Amino acid sequence: MDLVITSLGMVSSVGRDVVMACAAIRAGIACAQPLTYFEVLDEASQEMEPVTGHPIRGLTEGFTLIGRWLLLARACVADLFHQGALPDATHASFWRATGIRVVTPYHGDERFGVEASDAAPSREPIRRAYLQPLLEALRLPIDERNADLLCQGPSGAIQSIHEASGWMEARGLERMLVIAADSYCDPLTLEWLAGYRRLKTPENPQGLMPGEAGACFLLESAASARRRSPSMCFAIASAAIRVEQNHFFSRKPNTGIALAEALEETVAGAMPRAPFAGCMVSDLNGENWRANEWGYARIRLAQWFAEGPSLMLPAVSVGDTGAASGAGSVCVAARALARGYARGAQILVVSSSERGHVGAMCLSMKG
Rank of each mutant, 00 (worst) to 15 (best):
R198N: 06
G166F: 04
H54A: 15
G28I: 14
S7G: 13
A297D: 02
S165V: 11
S317L: 06
E293N: 09
G278H: 14
L284G: 10
K200P: 00
T64Y: 11
R128P: 00
T321R: 03
D283S: 04
L348R: 04
P87K: 00
G15F: 13
H82L: 12
S45T: 15
D88M: 00
G9R: 10
F217W: 14
S231Q: 14
Y341Q: 12
P105E: 05
T64E: 13
L71P: 00
M232S: 14
M10I: 11
S45G: 10
V102F: 13
H162G: 01
F305D: 03
G211F: 11
V18R: 14
A223H: 07
G278N: 08
E244D: 11
W294G: 01
L193W: 01
A268K: 14
Y196Q: 05
V330K: 04
I5W: 10
S229P: 00
A24M: 09
E144P: 09
L86G: 02
P253I: 11
P314L: 05
A194I: 00
A27F: 08
A315Q: 12
E144K: 06
P121W: 01
Q159W: 09
L8S: 13
R298E: 06
A32C: 13
E293H: 02
Q303H: 10
A119K: 11
L80A: 09
I66V: 13
G58P: 08
E124S: 03
T36F: 10
L35M: 14
S364V: 02
A333W: 08
S13L: 14
S45K: 10
M209Q: 13
I126A: 09
A129G: 04
D2A: 12
N254R: 03
W289D: 07
A222F: 05
R251Q: 15
H91R: 05
G53N: 13
E61T: 14
G211E: 02
A240E: 15
E354D: 13
E169M: 12
A315W: 08
A260P: 01
C22V: 08
E169F: 07
G367R: 09
A334K: 05
C185E: 05
T36D: 15
S317K: 02
L208W: 04
E287I: 06
W69A: 04
P202F: 11
S155W: 00
A360L: 01
Q152M: 08
T266Y: 03
Q206W: 12
L363R: 01
W192H: 09
T60G: 07
G67T: 08
A44G: 13
G99S: 08
V51D: 02
I126Q: 04
P230G: 03
G356T: 03
T64I: 15
A116V: 05
M209T: 14
D109K: 00
V318K: 12
S224M: 13
R171Y: 01
T64S: 15
A258C: 13
A116F: 11
E43W: 14
D186I: 03
N292F: 12
G172D: 06
A119E: 11
R123M: 10
L348G: 07
T321Y: 06
S238C: 04
A345Q: 14
